[in-house]
Design a protein around this nucleic acid. Structure first.
Lengths: 199, 199
DNA sequence: GTCTATAATTTGATAGAC
DNA sequence: GTCTATCAAATTATAGAC
C-alpha cells in the first residue's frame, strides 16, 4: 500500500512496478494491483486502458530508472575498471533480481512488441555503454589490447543477470557476490597484463 | 501434442516440462497441460494429485537431465579449460533459456520448498562441479594459481544464465555467444599467465 | 475521478459414469 | 484408466451510479 500523498494514478503505476518485479506480468492480476495501490477498479480503468496499458507505463519507468542508475556509475571520472567495479558493486536488492532482466522470462511480455521493446533496448544499451567504457580503458592502455570490448561487455552484463539467478536459487546473495568477484578478478589480471606489456 | 506411443502419464509429464520451460509455473494451467498431452482432466487427476504434483515430477526430471548433460561434458579426459569450453559451447536452445534457471523467476516455485529444492540443488551442484574442474586445472598448473575456483565457477554459471537473459531480450543468440566468448577469452589469458609463470 | 454492480472466461479441482 | 459433467473462485474487464 503506497502513501495516499500521491494520486491514484501514481500509486497504480508504483504498485504495478512492484508486482511486475515480484511476480511478473503473467503472475500479476489487476485486482492485486488495485489492492496494493489502495484503488478501486473504476480508478484503474479510468486512468489506464487495462492491465497491458498499465504494465507498459510501469515497464518504461523501470527501464528508464535502471538506465539512469547505470549511467550515474559509468559516467564518473576514473579508470575503466574502477567505473565497471563501481557499477557491479553498487548496492542491489540481489534476492529480488533485476526488474528488467526478469521480464525476459515472461512469455506474455516477450510476445508483445510494445512491452518487450523497453526490455530489449535497455539491455542492448547497457551492453553498448559498457563496451564503450572498456574501449576507453583499452585506448588508455589500462586494459589488455587483446580484450574484445563488445564480448567482454556482454560477459559483464551476463554475470550480473546470471548472478541474480544463482542468488535466487540459493536463497542468499552469496553466489552473486562470488560471480562478481570472479569476473572482476579475471578483468584485474587483464589490467595487470596490460601494465606488464607497457613496462 | 506428444506421440500416443507412450502412455498418458508420460505424455502429461513431458507436456508439463515443455510448458514450464515456455511459460513457467504461474503461466501454465492444467487445461493447457492436458490439451498438449492429448489427455482429459480425468486422466491427469488419476495419475497426479494436481498441478503441483505434476510440476514436481516434471521439475525433478528436468533437473536430473541438466545435471547428466553437464556431467557428460565435464567428466571426459582433457584439460580443465577444454572441458569448461566443451560445456559452455555445447549445443543449446539459447532463445528458450535454461529450463532450470527459468524457474528461479517463478514466485510460486520459489515459495514452495518441494518445487524449489531441485532448482537450488541443481545450480549448487553445477557451481561445485565446475569449481572442482577448475581446481584440477589449477593443481595441474594449467590455470593461474591466483584464480579462485568457487568464485570463478560462480562467474561461469552466471555467464551462462545471464547469457540466456540477454539472448531472450535481443531475440537472437548473439549476445549469448559473445558473453561465452568473452569469459573464455578471460580464462584463456589466465591459462597463458600460468604458462608464463611456469616458464 | 472513484465507487459498486455485473458478467463472460478461465482456473484448478471433484464426482461419478463407463 | 479415461471421459464428461459440475463447481467455487479468480481473472479481466464493462456499465452506470455518485
Amino acid at each position: 500500500m503506497y502513501s495516499k500523498g500521491v494520486n491514484a494514478e501514481e500509486r497504480l503505476i508504483e504498485s504495478t512496478r512492484a508486482l511486475l518485479w515480484e511476480r511478473g506480468y503473467v503472475g500479476t492480476s489487476p485486482k492485486a494491483i488495485q489492492q496494493r495501490a489502495g484503488a478501486g477498479q473504476g480508478s484503474m480503468y479510468h486512468h489506464f486502458a487495462g492491465k497491458h496499458d498499465l504494465a507498459l507505463t510501469a515497464i518504461r519507468r523501470t527501464a528508464e530508472e535502471l538506465r539512469a542508475a547505470a549511467e550515474a556509475r559509468l559516467s564518473v571520472p576514473g579508470t575503466a575498471l574502477g567505473r565497471v567495479t563501481a557499477y557491479l558493486r553498487r548496492e542491489r536488492d540481489v534476492l529480488k533480481g533485476c526488474p528488467v532482466g526478469r521480464l525476459t522470462q515472461d512469455p506474455d511480455v516477450m510476445a508483445d512488441p510494445a512491452l518487450r521493446a523497453p526490455v530489449e533496448e535497455t539491455l542492448a544499451w547497457l551492453r553498448a555503454r559498457l563496451a564503450q567504457v572498456l574501449e576507453e580503458g583499452r585506448a588508455a592502455g589500462e586494459l589488455d589490447s587483446r580484450l574484445d570490448p563488445p564480448a567482454t561487455a556482454a560477459t559483464i552484463v551476463a554475470v550480473l543477470q546470471g548472478g541474480y539467478v544463482l542468488a535466487r536459487a540459493s536463497g542468499t546473495a552469496d553466489p552473486f557476490d562470488q560471480a562478481i568477484s570472479g569476473v572482476l578478478a579475471l578483468l584485474t589480471l587483464h589490467a595487470a597484463e596490460a601494465a606488464r606489456h607497457r613496462a
